[in-house]
Each structure stands twice: as structure tokens, then as C-alpha cells.
Amino acid sequence: MRRELSLPFETRGHRGLISVRVVPNDDPWASGHQLVVPDLDAEAFRGFPICTAGLRYHGQGIEAIMGWIQVITRGDDVTIDLVPNLSPVDPFYTYGYLPTFFDAPANPDHPDGTWRASTFLVVVPDVIRSHVVEPLAAFSWGYNLHAGRPDLLDVTPLPARDWSGHQPLLQATHPTWTFA
């Protein structure tokens, strides 16, 4: 099973590298799930994936401001994954200086099926003046659920054409943004 991946990217005249790691959650208490699920049944959450993607980048300062956009597919349902306490107007899962991507989905109560994330490192070319987003690199990860128990999927690089496949949904969900 492939649980780690390195993806090169280039933006603003500098090279970078994404280091992705997906591991099963062996200790839902240690990963902080009780902060979002106060009556946590740790055993039900055990084994779901924890995904972390860090960046190394040769640019500095404002040049290193980037973001992550994540698209979730479950069966025929495709959604943009947004953090609940951030602005729903913006398409970003996270945005900032060398942003680390982190997600630890755990849905033991969902019906059997595949939960797959397409996770894109993106930039706004002029950082804050426009609402234009360009993809830099992407990867896929997730799990298959059977009777409440997850089986992790391999983490794999995504080709550039995957971004264009999500553009209609991104544009419909975030009409004030342009997805180049």
C-alpha cells in the first residue's frame, strides 16, 4: 500500500516539493477527535485515515502564500470540502504562508462505499488582489468503508486534467472566483 508521496511543483519562479503521508488513525484521542466529537467512541474512529501534506519551497515571504482545495467524492455525491468556521464564499480548505494540509475524516456511520479526496495545492497568482485560482499539483487519497470499518486507499498523484474536471463544480459553488 502506498502511504507516502512526494510531488514536485513550481510557481512564481521557484521550485517546491509536497510531502504527503496518509496513515491509519491508531489513536483517535491522540489525534484530537474528541475536540469535534465530544462523546467520542475511539474504537469506531480507529483505522480511518490521517492525511498530512507539508511543503518545502524555495520562495520566501509573500511568494510562499498558497492554498489547498479539496474535492470529496462519495458515490455520485461530489462536494467541495470546506472548513466550517471559514468563509463559505472562499473555496479554500486552507490558505496562507506555506500551508500544511491536514485532514482526518472519520465517518463510521456512513453507508458502505468509497470516500475519495482530490486534494489540490493552488495559488492565487497575485495573492490577494483577485479571485483567480491556479492549480500547482494534486493527489488523491481516501478509504473504502465496509460495515463501519475503513480500508485505506493508496495515495496517488493526480494528473492536471483532474482539475478541469472539477471546474464546473468549483465555479457553481464559488461564482465570485475563477478557476484557471
Rank of each mutant, 00 (worst) to 15 (best):
W141P: 02
T94Q: 11
H131Q: 15
I50N: 10
D26A: 13
G47W: 10
S87N: 10
D39Y: 10
R15Q: 14
L5T: 06
L5W: 04
R74N: 10
D162F: 06
E43P: 00
S31R: 09
P84H: 01
D81E: 14
G113V: 02
G96C: 12
L5R: 08
P105Y: 15
S164C: 08
A64W: 01
G16C: 14
P99K: 03
P111Q: 12
R56N: 10
V132W: 09
G54F: 00
T94F: 08
L145I: 11
Y97D: 04
I50S: 14
L98R: 04
T178H: 10
P150I: 07
Y95L: 12
V127E: 00
P91C: 12
T79N: 10
V124D: 02
L5A: 04
V89A: 15
V133S: 04
S118L: 05
I65S: 00
A138D: 07
P24W: 14
P99V: 01
V133Y: 04
V127S: 02
G47K: 07
L121N: 04
V36T: 15
R116A: 09
S31H: 09
T176H: 13
H33L: 08
W163L: 06
L35N: 12
N25F: 00
A42I: 09
I72S: 09
T178N: 12
A117P: 01
Y95Q: 02
T178V: 15
F102W: 13
A64D: 02
T173N: 02
P24K: 14
R21S: 15
N25W: 03
Y97V: 03
M1W: 06
S19Q: 12
G142W: 05
A117M: 06
Y57I: 06
P159Y: 10
L55R: 05
L158E: 15
V37L: 11
L136H: 03
A53W: 02
S140L: 11
P108Q: 10
T176A: 14
V124Q: 06
L17I: 05
T173W: 02
L145M: 06
V37M: 12
I128N: 03
P175E: 05
V122W: 01
H14A: 15
M66R: 03
G47A: 09
R56I: 11
Q60Y: 00
A117K: 05
S87K: 14
A44W: 03
S130Y: 09
S31D: 12
E4A: 13
A64C: 01
T100M: 13
R3Q: 15
